[in-house]
Simulated scan of single mutants.
Amino acid sequence: MSPPVQHLLLVEDDSTWRNRLGEAARAEGFVVSHATDGVEALEWLRSHPRAGHPDLILLDLVLPRMDGWELYGQLRTSERLRHLSVLMFSESLSGEESPLSGVVGFLRKPHAPEAMLHQLRATLRYLPEPAPREPSGPYALRLSENVALSLRLLPGSVGHAVRLHLLRAAELVGGELPMASTWLHALPGTPPSLLVTVEGVRVVLEVDDERRELTATSADVPPHLLRAS
Rank of each mutant, 00 (worst) to 15 (best):
S90Y: 09
A122T: 11
A140Q: 13
P64H: 09
L184F: 02
K109P: 02
A180N: 10
R46Q: 15
W44A: 13
A115W: 07
H185C: 01
L120Q: 03
R133P: 00
A27F: 04
S47T: 07
E206Q: 13
L195W: 00
V39H: 08
A219V: 09
P54I: 04
R76I: 12
G189C: 12
P223A: 12
P138S: 13
R46W: 09
L107M: 15
L75Y: 12
L107G: 01
V204Y: 02
A161Y: 02
L154V: 01
E12W: 09
V11A: 06
L9T: 08
P132L: 12
P188N: 09
L8N: 07
A186W: 07
S218Y: 06
M1D: 12
H165Y: 10
R202F: 01
L154T: 00
T215Y: 03
L59G: 10
D208F: 13
D37W: 10
G38W: 02
A115K: 15
V196E: 04
S78M: 14
P155G: 10
L151Q: 02
R163P: 01
L84E: 06
P191E: 05
S193H: 06
R121E: 08
A25V: 02
Y139A: 07
E210W: 11
S94D: 03
V11C: 08
E213T: 14
S98H: 08
H7M: 05
G175D: 05
H118G: 11
L10W: 05
M179G: 15
P223C: 08
T215I: 11
R18G: 07
G156F: 11
V11S: 04
H48R: 15
R18M: 10
G29I: 00
E23V: 04
G22L: 07
L45N: 07
L225A: 13
A180G: 12
A228Q: 14
S218R: 13
S78A: 15
W44G: 01
L153M: 12
L167V: 00
Y139H: 15
E28A: 09
V86S: 04
V221Q: 09
P155C: 10
S85T: 03
E114R: 13
P135D: 13
L141C: 07
L194Y: 00
E199R: 14
P54L: 10
R76Y: 10
R227H: 02
A140P: 01
F106Y: 15
L10I: 03
L120K: 06
P110R: 08
S15K: 08
G174Q: 04
L84W: 06
E70C: 09
G38A: 05
G189K: 10
T217S: 15
V162Q: 06
A131M: 11
E199L: 15
V196F: 11
L151N: 02
R202Y: 01
A122I: 02
G22K: 10
Q6S: 13
W69I: 13
V62F: 10
L177N: 03
A112Q: 15
S136K: 07
P178F: 12
S193E: 03
S2Q: 14
R18E: 07
L75W: 06
V31P: 00
L164D: 05
T182V: 03
G22S: 08
P130M: 11
E91N: 11
A140D: 02
A140V: 01
A112V: 14
L58D: 04
G175M: 04
V32Y: 03
A25N: 08
N146F: 02
S92N: 12
A25F: 11
D67L: 09
L124F: 11
L56M: 14
P135L: 12
P54W: 05
P99V: 04
P130V: 10
